[in-house]
Design a binder for these strands. Sequence first.
DNA 1: TACCCGATTTACT
DNA 2: GTAAATCGGGTAT
Length: 211
Amino acid sequence: MNTGAASQAVGSAPEPAGELGRLLSGPASTIAPRLLGLVLTVGERSGRIVEVEAYEGPDDPASHAFRGPTARTEVMFGPPGHLYVYLSYGVHWCANIVCHPDGVAGAVLLRALEPLTGVDGMWSDRPAAKRETDLASGPGKLCAALGITDRNNGVDLLDNTAPVRLQRPADHRSVSGSGFAVGPRIGITKAVDRPWRFGIADSPHLSRRFP
DNA sequence: TACCCGATTTACT
DNA sequence: GTAAATCGGGTAT
């Protein structure tokens, strides 16, 4: 239903609204560092994104979208600003923010979060955590802390009525402008050389230190 | 229909 | 530091 002309009409196309929408649209490896410092909200719980990883499409062997769309990965091929949730190792939910244009696969895995509000609720869903810095210091932990499951797969993060929302705090520009670290992605066996993991360098809430 | 394996976390040695 | 837990998707019969 998209014509070639429509896909070029960036200014007036029904892309995610506002400045945040524009921030989310582009190559995953470019968008990923810009997501650092954004605030993710689920009900009463919210946190600041401090660590992410980029996963692209047909050119990225480590990406779920590498071999084309499937029932599981179709969200990754949809419009940017939506949430792609999958089950890892049959145990943990992991959440990604879709960022490539509609029809082109690409997403950013959310790896760690600094708890801001609803921290008591996070503790009740993360009984194994020993410190507040461990509540969401990993992709599976992050989803557990916020209560994200496959129920939330495909939700529009920019919809104010959605159960999961993404917001930009006033100080985001300064946060993204400096002080983030880069390194290789974690836990993958393919394309391990690509430095597509990004994090706020001095955050104590990272899943792991950067090299 | 069967088998293999993973964008991880946790507990235990 | 190492291994177990656990299950749905993807690829191969």
